[in-house]
Write a protein that binds this DNA or RNA. Structure first.
Lengths: 193, 193
DNA sequence: TAGCTCTCTTGCACTCAGTGCAACTTGCAC
DNA sequence: GTGCAAGTTGCACTGAGTGCAAGAGAGCTA
């Protein structure tokens, strides 16, 4: 890891942390990009080098996350039903990033304007899963299965009281996967070979 | 229907139609609000009286839709499993608004920038459904069920070739509801009494 | 360590979305 | 017709996001 890469990662986390702190205090709309860059001590233009927009600062994955995704995907045993894999991936991811999940939840609590914004977990994570998932499904069915998992998380988050800690979220995720479970019909349970 | 209400409805449809035509030709980002109001012959400020933002002009429900929702909800027989009701509601809604669905699909085809924007059917429609749905479910399970139906539609739309007409979309919706079907386990099939 | 190069940062000027306000116009009721 | 309420418009403003060109700093090589 070169000095440059290290600095970039540090700056990313500085800006990210600063922004989420301010937004937890005042709400998303009440914090301008100028507020963030002033508090973080960088220029306005640099902010947009790191983040495509103001929403990205809340929802983009940590620069270290792709490594985590690879590890989580590698841990899934061959032959596991896809629906179970998805559940375990989400549980693993939310465990490893519990601190961020709670922060994001607090920003949302302070920012009703973010309501319709389902991006709890980065798109790129779902893309990685889609590329990894078994191919014995049509494109449509694969997208549908993955989007259903996404929906479990997106539905669980607003019902989650972050005071309960990350285990509260986990309970909702498990309940959601159980509710939508379609592994009861063995004949259409997709599995990785 | 007073003259005022009639004019409002006409203006709404004029602006909506003009905007979607321009966006189909050039793409969402390449059409500015100034372009729309110039083509529709209204003032910039009036545009924002009708629509909360540029996205709203694409995704807001037609002023006549709430009437349609009421009719569709009233048509569902008592005792029908919720999952089936949701399927039929979506089929009914997309049939009645086929023309708009196709237009929206074309705008999306011309506007990759709208990709992450799952709003095929207005939030207010889902709110109406949530208020109507059976109460023998926890809040979480109800939200999850409704969001799962939403996910079927949101997943179906990008897989839909609008050249196939609305029946192409219907086939995908049916297939999606079948894939996620959890009425196979009778004991947890929610039903309206 | 001097010098070259490539990356990242910054300031500036610009476009466009969205809002508050006050003046004006038009439908509607009495 | 007069008066009120609803709808429209122009204007001036804030804030997000972008293109560009100049400058600062990292990293490599001799």
């Amino acid at each position: 890891m070169t000095v440059r890469e290290l600095k970039k990662r540090e700056t990313w986390r500085l800006v990210h942390g600063t922004a989420l702190r301010l937004m937890t205090e005042r709400g998303f709309d009440a914090v301008s990009v100028d507020d963030i860059v002033a508090a973080a001590g960088i220029s306005r233009r640099t902010f947009f080098n790191y983040f495509a927009g103001k929403e990205s600062v809340v929802f983009d994955p940590d620069p270290g996350d792709p490594e985590l995704w690879d590890r989580l995907l590698a841990e899934r045993p061959a032959g596991e039903p896809l629906w179970i894999s998805l559940r375990e991936l989400l549980l693993g991811y939310t465990t490893a990033t519990a601190e961020r999940m709670i922060l994001q939840r607090q920003v949302r609590a302070a920012s009703p304007e973010l309501a319709g914004c389902s991006r709890e977990v980065a798109d790129r994570f779902w893309d990685a899963i889609r590329a990894w998932a078994p191919s014995n499904l049509s494109d449509f069915q694969l997208d549908l299965t993955i989007n259903a998992a996404r929906t479990v998380l997106n539905t669980a988050c607003p019902h989650w009281a972050p005071d309960d800690g990350i285990t509260g979220l986990h309970a909702l995720i498990r309940a959601g996967f159980d509710t939508l479970d379609w592994t009861t019909d063995e004949s259409r349970t997709p599995v990785r070979s």
